[in-house]
């Protein structure tokens, strides 16, 4: 299991002169459910952008397996990006396309499947996220939670090796959030997908995460990496303990 899938070394993220986080070092192994956590505004989403190729680092490297993501040429980078799926916070469905066209888009662009086969895959993916029968709806016609699930179906369209989730449970009711957590675990167990989740939902962090990085907005760097449960049990850093116990501090 300890096969590194994404390795981040000495990563510094900045907008111009304004440093968001500096000197991040962590490894995401194959089959991990990796949590990026930290308080609001600490740069979790920015870190995600660096991992999925939307923003280039000010310093440092991101490796996918052994390949240096930001040094690779454009074609290689597109190849890497095709092996990942991203669920954006708002779903980011293409509003001018129906759900089935949304999910079919990566399939038509990157595979040689026939139209019928693509339709079958689309229906199957929608059924996986509990949206069977919504193929012909436009994103504006369904609720926010449904948009998010449809976004997940699109992210899974090409059976990616790595799935990134940006605040998956934000805006979902507790039951749907729990179902999403179950789905994430299921994907990891059945397909061996590596999962990277940006969240500050404690329930999910402990329920699904087996590895994590904790970002701090004051020192602008990571405070710890490792399994969230282990961090709670063993960490001596008051910030981490406070975060993982909803501010209660360690029960002595």
């Amino acid at each position: 299991m300890a096969d590194p899938h994404i390795t981040v070394t000495d990563l510094t993220m900045a907008y111009g002169d304004f440093v968001i986080q500096h000197d991040l070092n962590f490894t995401i192994c194959r089959g991990d459910v990796f949590i990026i956590m930290g308080g609001s505004g600490c740069g979790k989403s920015t870190l995600l952008k660096h991992l999925i190729g939307l923003q280039s680092p000010a310093k440092g490297e991101v490796f996918y397996a052994a390949q240096n993501f930001w040094e690779a040429d454009a074609d290689e980078r597109v190849l890497i990006m095709r092996s990942i799926g991203v669920l954006y916070q708002s779903g980011a469905l293409f509003s001018s396309l129906t759900l089935s066209e949304n999910i079919a888009l990566p399939l038509t662009e990157f595979t040689r499947l026939s139209r019928g086969e693509i339709q079958d895959i689309v229906s199957y993916k929608l059924a996986l996220v509990g949206l069977a029968g919504f193929e012909e709806y436009y994103p504006s016609e369904i609720s926010g939670g449904m948009q998010k699930r449809a976004g997940l179906a699109r992210a899974m369209a090409l059976d990616p090796e790595i799935l990134f989730f940006d605040e998956p449970s934000a805006g979902l009711d507790p039951v749907s959030a729990r179902l999403l957590d179950d789905l994430i675990i299921n994907l990891r167990d059945t397909l061996g997908t590596t999962i990277v989740v940006v969240t500050h939902e404690l329930a999910s962090i402990f329920a699904i995460g087996n590895n994590s990085v904790f970002l701090d907005s004051e020192t602008k760097t990571m405070l710890a990496t490792g399994s969230p449960k282990k961090l709670l049990a063993e960490s001596t850093d008051p910030k981490i303990i406070q975060f993982l116990t909803r501010g209660k501090g360690r029960a002595v």
Binding site: I52, L54, L93
Partner: peptide, 13 residues
């Protein structure tokens, strides 16, 4: 605004 362009980029399109 809706991150649709980001979504395209990360799809490799």
């Amino acid at each position: 605004v809706n991150s649709e362009i980001d979504a395209l980029k990360t799809m490799g399109i």
